[in-house]
């Protein structure tokens, strides 16, 4: 390890030939971004409404909290393997996307539920006392106050999805993981390190973009809440 390996990885990355073609970095990166982005969007579309709704109702707590424990016990590799020996294997990126959705939904749902339940009950009671309807309460009080926790959950889910999408390469699906497995199979350590660096950088980039998006979006909400209250 050390400078030699990192230097080798740098040389590998600096070689333009490694970036083009079907197994080149650009194509694998595009696959990786497409697969993780789609999976995350689908997971959010399923998990956030359900988690927030259950949190608003204050029901299904045991389900919402335990689902992430169960989710943690299911290996993504095993789920992918099961899809790859089923007819789904001929469906392009579907196996990876579905496996990643199943992986991301539990923590997102639990976080959304917990975020909403953590909202100070006395604030909720006060809003009710002011005559707010269930919908108003949800939009003007619960959601803005739960926002930071929901966004934290979304960020960690996004980073985890990007990192986990590499496992798809173990069953021959696309993504940056293929650079790692290809390097692994040809005993090309610099290529393995380069692939690992690319995935880690992508994960950090996603985290950074989401932090920035959160900063841009969230200040609006407390501000609107303040003006409504005064």
């Amino acid at each position: 390890m050390g400078g030699g390996v990192l230097g080798g990885a740098w040389d590998w990355l600096a070689d333009g030939a490694n970036w083009s073609g079907e197994s080149g970095v650009w194509h694998r990166l595009a696959e990786h971004v497409y697969v993780s982005g789609l999976a995350l969007a689908l997971a959010c579309a399923v998990a956030l409404p359900v988690g927030l709704w259950l949190g608003h109702l204050g029901r299904g707590g045991a389900l919402a909290v335990n689902i992430s424990n169960v989710g943690r016990a299911v290996p993504v590799f095993a789920v992918l393997a099961l899809f790859m020996v089923s007819p789904l294997r001929n469906a392009g990126y579907v196996p990876t996307v579905v496996a990643l959705v199943l992986f991301a939904v539990p923590p997102l749902l639990t976080n959304a539920y917990v975020g909403l339940r953590e909202v100070d009950r006395s604030v909720v009671e006060a809003a009710r006392g002011m005559g707010m309807s269930g919908g108003q309460l949800f939009r003007r009080v619960e959601l803005p106050l739960a926002w930071p926790l929901v966004m934290t959950g979304l960020r960690s889910a996004a980073v985890q999805v990007v990192a986990t999408a590499t496992i798809a390469a173990m069953v021959g699906q696309g993504g940056l993981g293929r650079i790692i497995t290809a390097g692994f199979n040809t005993y090309n350590t610099p290529q393995v390190v380069a692939g690992a660096l690319l995935v880690a950088l992508l994960a950090l980039l996603v985290e950074g973009v989401l932090v920035a998006a959160d900063r841009l979006l969230s200040p609006l909400r407390p501000a609107s809440l303040r003006t409504e209250q005064s």
Binding site: T166, M170, F184, V192, G195, A200, A203
Partner: peptide, 9 residues
Amino acid sequence: TIPSLAMFS
């Protein structure tokens, strides 16, 4: 954030 596949490799 380091993918497990990369970590083991």
